[in-house]
Amino acid sequence: MTLMASRRSLLTTLGAAAALATLPAWQEEDERPGHMQVLSPDPLWTRFATTPIVMDRRSGAYTATFRPDVTRLAGRPITIMGFMLPLEAARATRHFGLMRKNHQCDFCPPSLPTEAIEVRLIQPHANTTDLIQVSGRLSLHPSSDSGFFFQLDQAVAR
C-alpha cells in the first residue's frame, strides 16, 4: 500500500468515525458491524411489536392476535413518529404507509408487519424521507386482507 493510499484510508476511517459520533439518537446500529439503520424512537412501535403474527400455510393469509395493551388503543386517537412510504406516485398524498424503519436504505431489512401503519390523512402532506409525526384514530385489523394490521384514519401529519 502506498503512503497516499494509507492516508486516504485513514482519512476515510476518521471521517466515518466523526459522522457516527454525531448521529441523532434515533439512529441505531444494525446487527451487521459498522452498518447503521434509521429507526423511529417512538415507544408505540415497541408495543405494536408484541403483536404475534401467524401465517396459515394452506391459504397464505396472515393473522394478528392483538394483546390487551394494544386493543385498548383501538378507536382512540394516538400520535406516533415514523417514516413515510408513499403508496401512490404524487408529490403530496393523503394515503401512505408509516414505517418504523427508514425505507431509503437499500441494504437494510424492510419493516416487519408490526412496524407498518396505513395512514389516511385529512389533508395531503408532501412526501418526505424525514421522520414525521402523525396523529389519528387507530383501528386494528387482525386479517392481512387489508394489507396492514394497523391503520390511522382522520389523521394529521407534522
Rank of each mutant, 00 (worst) to 15 (best):
L11V: 05
L14T: 07
A16S: 13
A17P: 00
A19C: 08
L23F: 09
A25R: 10
R32F: 00
P33E: 11
Q37M: 14
S40F: 01
P41I: 01
W45C: 04
T46G: 11
R47Y: 00
F48Q: 07
R57T: 13
S59C: 08
S59M: 05
A64P: 08
T71K: 07
L73E: 04
A74H: 13
G75V: 08
I78N: 05
F83Y: 15
F83P: 06
L85P: 00
L87D: 03
A92K: 13
A92W: 07
T93S: 14
H95F: 15
L98W: 02
M99S: 12
M99F: 11
K101M: 12
D106T: 09
P109D: 03
S111Y: 03
T114M: 00
T114C: 00
L121I: 06
Q123W: 10
P124N: 06
A126D: 12
N127D: 11
T128W: 09
L131D: 02
S135C: 01
R137A: 09
H141K: 08
H141M: 07
S143L: 11
S146G: 13
G147A: 10
G147Q: 08
F149Q: 04
L152C: 01
Q154V: 01
A155Y: 03
A155W: 04
A155I: 04
V156L: 07
